[in-house]
Amino acid sequence: MATVMLVPGEAVPPLVKDPITKVQLVKYAGASGDYNLIHTDLETARAAGLPGIIAHGMLSMGFLGQFLVGLAGPEGVRRLRVRFNAVVRPGDVLTCRGTVTSVRDTGRGGRVVALEVWVENQRGERVTAGEAEVLSA
């Protein structure tokens, strides 16, 4: 944590995730309680007009949660807001990226670091994007 420079304009080290697998989507459905079958059943996904099963948007937001915890620790995440822009499919390789937009003192000895954050796929498309705030010493 202490090695990451949280300075406005600076990019923070990316988090590259393993390729999305169908097993991961089944696990995420069970763990999250989101059993919408468009995430696990091809027939349902096609009937809904999708090209195939798609990942839960909340899974990519979960990756951003992991990314922020990597920067600030499990106690340090204050806010995360995202928009889901594009579908994620099994086989996609997602990378979490972020840039510091501002740093301000909390007045209680710490700092709040605001970041622009996004998840991009292997084609460089920002599938999920938004902003976050973390605490920093």
């Binding site: 909340m58 807001r81 995202v82 889901f84």
Partner: peptide, 10 residues
């Protein structure tokens, strides 16, 4: 649920 898309979350 098949008619619902998740747009944003905060």
């Amino acid at each position: 649920p098949a008619r619902v898309l998740h747009g944003e979350e905060e």
